[in-house]
Amino acid sequence: MKARSAFSIQRDVVFAIFVREMISRFSTYTFGNIWLVLEPLMMMILFIVLFGARGQGAYGFTEAPIFIYTSFLTFRGLWASTMRQCASARGGARGLMEFRQVRLFDVFLARTVIEGGLFLIVGLIIALGLVWLGYDPWPDDPLRVLGYCTVLWLLAASFGMLSCMLGSIAREVEKLVSMLTMPLLFMSAVFFPMSIVPRDYWGYLTWNPILHAMELVREAWFSNYTSPVADFGYLFAATLTCLALAMSSYRLTWRRIVAQ
C-alpha cells in the first residue's frame, strides 16, 4: 500500500463506481446495453404517434419528431433519470460503505457523470437515426444548448441529492419525489412550447425552474423560436440554491447515513 492524495483516492473511487454501475445496471437484462437507446426511443415513438394522431404535430417552428426529440430526451435523460439515480443512491451504495475510502458523495458523482454521458450518447444515436430518416436534428446554437443542459443536469443532481438526504430522515420523501415525476412531465413544457399556453397561466407554471430550462434549451435549439417566459437568472438561482441545500444537508447527515 502506498499513500495517495485525497484527490487521487476520490478519482480512483469514482472511476471504480462508474465501471461497477455500468456493469451491474445492464448485465441483468437480456438485451443489455441496447435498452439504453431502446427505452427513450420507444417512449418517443409513442408520443410522436400520439401527436400525429391528434393531427397537429408542429407548432410552426419545427416538425413533431424533432420537437419531441429536443424536449422529451432532455427532460428524461437530464432531469428525470439523473434525479432518480441520485435520489436512490443510498440503497445502491449499501454494500460499498464497507470500504473507508468510498463515500456516498462518490456515488452521487459517479451516477451524475454516467447520466450526463448517457444523455449525450443516446442523444447522438437518436440524432443520427433522425438524420437517416431525413430530418435535421442539429441545434442552431449547440454551445448554448450544452450550457443550458449542464445547468439542468446540475439542478437534477442537486435535487436528487437533497431528496436522498431528506429521505434518510423520513422515508416518505422518496414516495413524494417519485409521485412528483409524472406531473412534472406535464408541467414543464415538455410536450408544448409556452407560446401556446394562455398568458393567464404563465404565472403559475413559471415557478417551476425545469420549465425555464426546457424553454431555454428550445430557444437555443431553434433560432426562430423565442420563449415568452424563459429566465436564465431564475433557473441559475434555483440551481444554486438547490446545490447549496444539498451540499449542506450532505455535510450534516453523511455520518449518520453511513452508520445505517
Partner: peptide, 21 residues
C-alpha cells in the same frame, strides 16, 4: 463484506483493486 451480488468474483476483485489504487 461489501461485495455486489450481481457482479462476478473477478469483477468484485477488480473493483476493490481500483478503489485501493
Amino acid at each position: 463484506s461489501g461485495f455486489q451480488g450481481t457482479l462476478t468474483g473477478r469483477e468484485n476483485v477488480r473493483f476493490i483493486c481500483r478503489i485501493h489504487g
